[in-house]
């Protein structure tokens, strides 16, 4: 079975786990497994994974899609590089309620991996911060979605777009 590994990255509390939770409920029929290793406060420690299998038309084969979110806190940076090096594509979640420099520092961690692998940007929490046009411009020609993950807005679109970009990228071509 072929498999795609997509990593959701961003600052702590940006909404990565909320994205995976929403996708887990929307794609209930595709879900194989979901687990989340968290602290008592609900913060991701290491494992936050949603595993799905998508049927390929005209084939008995299914495409396995593994979504993994990273522990967002700065102290986990040493383990993130291992996760990044294994990814086929990335979703970077921008938290507009936190300072842009902090968001860009987190985005910068992806730099060495995204020269050959696709990345889709999701500006989350637009239900709290209305205007995000200036933020969009920062990411240049990257695909950018606005979202409110806790309300499920923009989550599905973000996922389908990174999935499409990963498949079109071919990975390893």
């Amino acid at each position: 079975m072929r498999e795609i590994f997509i990593v959701y990255h961003g600052l702590g509390m940006a909404g990565k786990t909320t994205n995976l939770e929403f996708l887990s409920s929307v794609f209930q029929n595709l879900k194989i497994d979901r687990f989340h290793q968290s602290t008592v406060e609900g913060r991701t420690v290491y494992l936050d994974m949603l595993l799905m299998a998508i049927k390929i038309k005209g084939s008995e084969e299914k495409l396995k899609v593994r979504l993994f979110s990273t522990p967002g806190q700065e102290r986990f940076s040493v383990v993130r590089s291992w996760i990044f090096s294994n990814a086929d594509g990335f979703v970077f979640i921008v938290d507009p309620t936190q300072h842009i420099d902090e968001n860009l520092r987190s985005y910068g961690e992806l730099r060495e991996y995204t020269t050959k692998k696709p990345v889709v940007i999701q500006i989350n929490k637009t239900d709290i911060v209305g205007e995000v046009d200036s933020l969009k411009k920062i990411f240049g020609n990257r695909t950018v979605f606005t979202a409110s993950a806790k309300n499920g807005v923009g989550v599905r679109e973000t996922f389908l777009t990174i999935l499409k970009e990963v498949i079109e990228n071919g990975v390893g071509k």
Partner: peptide, 16 residues
């Protein structure tokens, strides 16, 4: 073995 991970696969072939 250098390979395209998704030979012949297109996004619109997925039943999603």
């Amino acid at each position: 073995r250098s390979n395209n991970k998704f030979p012949g696969l297109k996004f619109d072939m997925l039943e999603i």
